[in-house]
Design a protein around this nucleic acid. Structure first.
Length: 497
RNA sequence: GGGCCGCUAGCUCAAGUGGUAGAGCAACGGACUUUUAAUCCGUGGGUUCGGGGUUCGAGUCCCUGGCGGCUCACCA
């Protein structure tokens, strides 16, 4: 017994039938996986050329997967699908040749095989544009049966573990990821057009920062050094402002070692941009313009169907002070509670779970998440956040407990976070030290001190506005999905047992 | 992590209170020159997620483990 492929008895009947056909093909001298292929048009190109009257009787050479077969006596139909579309093929015994039709096409070709066909484009009696096949060659034999042609794949576990089956069986899934690509394309195009420079910064970091989150830890064997996977790009991008690039952005992956939910994946795609000589008000305006552009170009309009809601991305968005929003939602004015203990007492009086270890900022964040966020369906900005949960944002001149920060909410989710960037190195160091106290007190998400970053600020960073947005969540909104796994090709899943 | 729900043929799904596990598609054999979820005749296909238990008998009831979904908690 070797570790080679299982014997034929171990295959289920359908795979066995296909493997027997594979052997028959090889016995006939036909390579079931040839290296070279001739193609004159993609399916989309062939359809366009035919409808434009450019083809006449000229044969085209097309390639793709056989996704439907209707075999009949002397004339059969099927559908061929490539990355650009789907086209009916008509296979006639008299045109293909009796032997090729009976002994190759009908006997040895299966649903799911990848083939090349050639022949002229015609229109059938029912009016469907069709390739009338005069030659067919196998490009790749499919050894496993295709999913149900009508129902596709529904089992969510199979859909995510074997995404290739999901994609090949469910066209609407293919469209989601095309839209995702379009969103990234439009965002880049918008930012490039506004003079932003796209950059790349380290994913492996010896000091993580820029967000409140627990990191993943990894290890460099030869340096004998623990490293963190980044939780944001922020501190590196602002070093570039110090370096003299006034407008920079990065699109890439962040990693946060936290819970998984319908709106959280351990790795997720983030856009951050930093713009010198503006502030959070300027960034709000840019956010509105940028997302209006994306909605317009990706969906064709400012109004986007999302579940039972129609989201309207037309600027401007309502701007509500966070304090006001929380007060309106639950009656607590957090300005009346200047420390964590008093706020906790007030929350508990309303039967709200308020953990003893939570800082005042964490408690406010909890009120936000509990009472405000789920109701912010239409694009809305909440503005002016407590300083203790915003260690990188500039304080308001008239209120040192509040920073110039906003978060954007759509569909009951936070999709972006932005502020006037703190560029005072002395204040920044003090904020890091205050965060260190929270960390000592048990807050694993408290921001660590990044001395090199403070050093960079001490050379002078221009006043700037910065912005971060979750691309996955934006994609959910623009593709009418309510689960982040539907917009990530290979979401994190537990290993199969 | 908690609660609820799910896992049956390759795929989509059925199987009152425990009593020989079925259908459609797919597959296999046959008929068929304008079909398009092709149609018609015939055939095969199962560790009912794994393990244990109750019972004469378990897809079904009990215990346990795995994976997944929804939801709450936490977080972007």
């Amino acid at each position: 017994m070797t570790d080679s492929a299982p014997s034929s008895q171990e295959y289920l009947d359908q795979e066995l039938a296909r493997r027997q056909k594979l052997q028959q093909l090889q016995a006939k001298g036909i390579d079931p996986f040839p290296a070279r292929v001739q193609r004159s048009h993609t399916i989309a190109e062939a359809l366009v050329a035919y409808e434009a009257g450019q083809l006449d009787e000229t044969p085209v050479q097309l390639t793709g997967r056989l996704v439907a077969l209707r075999i009949m006596g002397k004339l059969s139909f099927g559908h061929l699908q490539d990355g650009t579309g789907r086209l009916q093929i008509m296979v006639r015994r008299d045109l293909l040749g009796a032997e090729r039709y009976n002994d190759f096409f009908k006997k040895l070709v299966d649903l799911g095989d990848i083939v090349a066909v050639q022949g002229p484009m015609v229109t059938t009696r029912t009016g469907e544009i069709t390739c009338q096949v005069t030659g067919m060659t196998l490009l790749a034999k499919s050894l496993r049966p295709m999913p149900d042609k009508w129902h596709g794949i529904k089992d969510p576990e199979v859909r995510q573990r074997q995404r290739y089956l999901d994609l090949l069986a469910n066209p609407e899934v293919r469209q989601v990821f095309r839209t995702r690509a379009a969103i990234l394309r439009v965002l880049r195009s918008y930012l490039d057009g506004e003079g932003f420079l796209e950059v790349e910064t380290p994913i492996l970091q010896s000091v993580y920062g820029g967000a409140a989150a627990e990191p993943f830890v990894t290890h460099h064997n030869y340096l004998r050094q623990d490293l963190y996977l980044r939780i944001s790009f922020e501190l590196y991008l602002k070093r570039l402002l110090v370096g003299g690039y006034d407008r920079v952005y990065e699109i890439g992956r962040d990693f946060r070692n936290e819970g998984i939910s319908h709106k959280h994946n351990p790795e997720f795609t983030q856009l951050e941009f930093y713009e010198a000589y503006t502030d959070y008000v300027g960034v709000m305006e840019r956010t509105e313009a940028m997302l209006a552009t994306v909605a317009q170009e990706v969906t064709g309009g400012y109004e986007v169907q999302w579940g039972e809601h129609i989201l309207n991305f037309r600027p401007p968005w309502p701007r509500i002070p966070l304090r006001q929003a929380i007060f309106d939602a639950c009656g607590i004015d957090y300005n009346e509670y200047p420390d964590a203990d008093s706020l906790r007492t007030a929350m508990r009086a309303l039967k709200i779970d308020a953990p003893i270890e939570a800082t005042r900022g964490k408690l406010i964040d909890k009120l936000l998440g509990l009472f405000v966020e789920p109701n912010l369906i239409q694009p809305t900005f909440l503005v002016d956040y407590p300083v203790d949960v915003s260690p990188l944002a500039k304080k308001k001149v008239d209120d040192p407990l509040t920073v110039e920060r906003f978060e954007g909410f759509v569909g009951g989710m936070e999709i972006c976070n932005a502020f006037s960037e703190l560029n005072d190195p002395i204040d920044q160091l003090q904020r890091f030290i205050d965060q260190g106290r929270d960390f000592e007190a048990g807050d694993k998400e408290a921001h660590p001190v990044d001395e090199d970053y403070v050093n960079a600020l001490s050379y002078g960073m221009p006043p700037a506005g910065g912005f971060g947005m979750g691309i996955d969540r934006l994609t959910m909104l623009l593709t009418n999905q309510t689960n982040i796994r539907e917009v990530i090709l290979f979401p994190h899943l537990r290993p199969e047992s």
